[in-house]
């Protein structure tokens, strides 16, 4: 042990040198309470930073928030010139990002899932027409259910979460309208804007319990919109088997990020934050960064649903064709995503 301590002492000056070495361009990310390795929301955004690191040779740093109280503190600790652009991931960081951006007008910020009105010159918001992709997922789920009951629950009742639930529910309505069925959605009512929420983005236990409740009520497909909380739901589905319960992933293609339980994911509603984050970094390096909003849509590939993977053979060809039609309809505007 003494040897190691001595080595540590020798390493210290070296470490100091490293710490002060300035990279060419540094992108920093602050996660919400889900953490950097949540398999979905924060991880997808971080993937964009990592892609930029690989392709553009930038430096990358991140800071995890352990509680809501950390947001402001974390932003503060990244200020002071060590980051060229700071990504804050999530709607809940909206207030803290705004305050920091106004106090530090020379610092570039970009926030996922938040748009300021009026725009702040040094903040670029990234928002997504997630309802478009969720609409497709709802249509698919309505076509796949055997019980005629679908389940959905969210993390916190905030727009970037409920937009998934809205789109999903509208997609199911659309299916019912086309096929004359009466598939129902438990856990969210787009009109009253009330539903099931775990009120956190980090408890896998809650994810399991909420999915269990929905399953007990007859749901055979569940959409958890709560970042890593959904992993708890997937664990339940993996135990019950996909014949009993299927899960629809969110943010990333969970079949790929959560391969151990890949067999339970019917599909995933992807928010391509990696793409938009990468785009923002490119703009920042090129000097074309300006405050405002970029919107990811089905049309520009910012949102989409993932391939069916293991369910490729189970999804009827007719349903797959219908999905393609609906998708085209959304893009050309002939199908309106919204309440009926």
């Amino acid at each position: 042990m003494t040897h190691r301590i001595t080595r540590a002492a020798i390493c210290l000056p070296l470490a100091l040198g490293l710490a002060t070495e300035a990279g060419a361009f540094t992108a920093c990310q602050i996660t919400d309470t889900g953490g950097i390795d949540d398999n979905s929301f924060n991880q997808t955004a971080w993937q964009g930073v990592l892609d930029a690191q690989g392709q553009l040779g930038i430096d990358a740093r991140f800071l995890e928030s352990q509680a809501e109280t950390d947001y402001e503190a974390n932003i503060t600790s990244l200020l002071g010139g060590q980051c060229d652009v700071i990504f804050t991931i999530g709607f809940l960081l909206g207030d803290a990002t705004q305050a920091a951006a106004l106090a530090n007008p020379d610092q570039m910020f970009s926030i996922v899932d938040y748009a300021y009105d009026p725009a702040i010159p040094n903040v670029l918001g990234q928002v997504y027409a997630t309802d478009e992709a969720a609409f497709l997922a709802g249509y698919l789920a309505a076509g796949m259910t055997e019980t005629g009951i679908l389940g959905v629950f969210g993390g916190i009742n905030i727009p970037p979460v409920t937009i998934f639930m809205d789109g999903f529910a509208w997609g199911v309505d659309h299916y019912n309208g086309v096929h004359g069925t009466s598939v129902t959605v438990l856990g969210w009512d787009p009109d009253t804007r009330e539903g099931l929420f775990t009120n956190n983005f980090d408890s896998l236990d809650d994810g399991r319990a909420f999915a269990q409740n929905l399953y007990d009520e007859g749901a055979d497909i569940v959409l958890p919109v709560a970042g890593p909380v959904g992993l708890g739901s997937a664990a339940l589905a993996a135990e019950l088997g996909p014949d009993e319960l299927m899960i629809i992933g969110v943010d990333a293609d969970l079949y790929l990020t959560d391969p151990e339980r890949g067999q339970v994911y019917l599909t995933s509603i992807m928010k391509r934050m990696d793409a938009t984050v990468f785009q923002v970094i490119e703009q920042a390096i090129a000097g074309t960064f300006e405050g405002g909003v970029i919107v990811g849509t089905l049309e520009n590939g910012g949102v989409d649903i993932a391939p069916f993977h293991d369910f490729e053979g189970s999804v009827p060809a007719a349903l797959a064709e219908e999905l393609a039609t609906v998708r085209a309809g959304i893009i050309d505007g002939s199908i309106a995503v919204g309440g009926m």
Partner: peptide, 10 residues
């Protein structure tokens, strides 16, 4: 070791 040293300096 270098990272450990760096982290304690930090």
């Amino acid at each position: 070791m270098a990272t450990i040293g760096r982290s304690y300096v930090a």
